[in-house]
Design a protein around this nucleic acid. Structure first.
Lengths: 86, 86
DNA sequence: ATAATATTTAGATATTTGTCTAAATACCTA
DNA sequence: TAGGTATTTAGACAAATATCTAAATATTAT
């Protein structure tokens, strides 16, 4: 199930770009949306998918919601791929 | 483009199981199909997607088509993931 | 040459997915 | 409390995807 949600979350160029953005710094939903030519509700939906996959976390800060990359889950992904290599 | 086809190919439980099978040994299309409760044409389609992503290679051997895992492409996948970690 | 086996191609269909607009919710400020 | 900003939820829709059956293609064996 974990691999399922991880690959599903990363199987989209927009979502891969979002995690690449969050690698640089934490950003709120609006700042993230500003980087794309996609409506805010759509970005919100992408964030939800990334969050369900545990690739990002969110924290409410006043009226903003700040998103952060969760790098620890990437270990699981790398481990799965590495098992294919031996 | 490469990440796109790689994540697309691996965003399916059946296809992930196929590469796990091919990790153990090369197999022909029929042997692979025998491992699943899915029609042969569907498996053939999955193999095509994996092949397009360069995750597997195929070689015709008489009336059989033998499939092999291509582990070298996994480097690209791992490298992309690793860039997120620093 | 015919029949049998292995695999792929073609076409159809139900489900999933990415996107949008409109509306709802939450928070802040005057 | 009223109005403005930030974000999510709801509902709709087109495109992509996974699956199937039937048919086509390729190879082997009788």
């Amino acid at each position: 199930m974990k691999m399922n949600s991880l690959f599903k979350a990363l199987n989209d160029e927009t979502r891969r770009q979002i995690v690449e953005l969050l690698k640089e710094r934490d950003m709120n939903a609006g700042e993230i949306a500003d980087q794309f030519n996609i409506s805010k509700p759509s970005i919100s939906h992408h964030l939800d998918i990334l969050k369900r996959a545990d690739l990002i976390t969110s924290e409410k800060k006043g009226q903003f919601v700040e998103y952060s990359l969760n790098t620890s889950i990437l270990e699981d992904l790398i481990n799965w791929i590495l098992t294919l290599k031996n």
